[in-house]
Design a binder for these strands. Structure first.
Lengths: 147, 147
DNA sequence: ATGGAGCTTCCCATCATGGCAAGGTCAAGC
DNA sequence: GCTTGACCTTGCCATGATGGGAAGCTCCAT
């Protein structure tokens, strides 16, 4: 089948299939004489695997690891579990950061009249001179998963 | 003061100060005869405001809105509150997405031996043929806040 | 006057993704 | 057989917020 069919069958856009091929996440597809990429049902399975991993927030790099483990029949499940749990830890860290932000904002909004008057504790807090440090400490690589 | 001093005083990197100026979030700084940017204590306050908003996960665009409201002495607090609560809603949505991912992964990992054997329900699930749809439905713009 | 710290601009990279454009290919209908 | 439209190809550009680095200028203290 062509890339369009593989795309609809796997849920991965044709654009991304080409991209994954380009960065080496998946091997280069076979081509017809005229240069069209050709995919098998097995390839679609792989793409579906990728889409599911992506939906669970795994980065392309992590997907590469998972794909390799998937295709390695002699893998140790401990290796897979480790990757999964490490990812869970990252997700949870991100959740805590976001919860901190939401908590702060809800608190501030709760003290804001929210009417026609200009006084607003939200702005007051943002403008505060005090040095309380950021709600979220470091500036690190994101936790992708719908960006 | 020069940009370096403004940077350490505000917690915003010199690089980002120039960027914010470039995209129009802040007005272009005055320059010395030799071209150095010059900042006042007032400018540092603004930068600090920006850093705090950024730490609460507001996008540059939202920061622009908040800055304008901050500087508008005739603002209505309702406007500020609306921006804040809308942002909270986005954060909460993102949290729910991440929680869905974490839940799924924890569940799968809980059923994985995690030993030397190759059987692994995590991989089995990722490879599942069934069409259950993504844990996170759409692919939308991220919720920045440490990316 | 020399050196080094700090400033300037400009370009590149990230990560995953979409969009657009120019051009080739294929299949269906006439 | 030819036209048409859907589909494919590659390539470039853009996103958002940020860092890195290079080349060159300025400032200040020895």
């Amino acid at each position: 089948m062509n890339i369009g069919e593989a795309s609809t069958a796997s849920g991965v856009s044709a654009k991304m299939i080409r991209y994954y091929e380009q960065i080496g996440l998946i091997p280069a597809a076979l081509r017809t004489e005229s240069g069209y990429r050709v995919y098998t049902a097995r390839d679609v399975e792989t793409l579906r695997f990728i889409r599911r991993a992506r939906d669970l927030g795994f980065s392309v790099e992590e997907m590469g690891t998972l794909l390799a483990l998937w295709q390695d029949k002699a893998r140790e499940s401990a290796d897979v579990k480790r990757v999964a749990l490490q990812h869970v830890a990252e997700i949870e860290k991100r959740i805590h950061e976001l919860e901190g932000m939401a908590r702060t904002l809800r608190h501030l909004a709760g003290h804001c009249h929210g009417d026609e008057r200009p006084d607003c504790p939200i702005l007051d807090d943002l403008a505060a001179i005090s040095e309380t440090g950021p709600a979220v400490p470091a500036r690190k690589p994101a936790l992708r998963g719908r960006n």
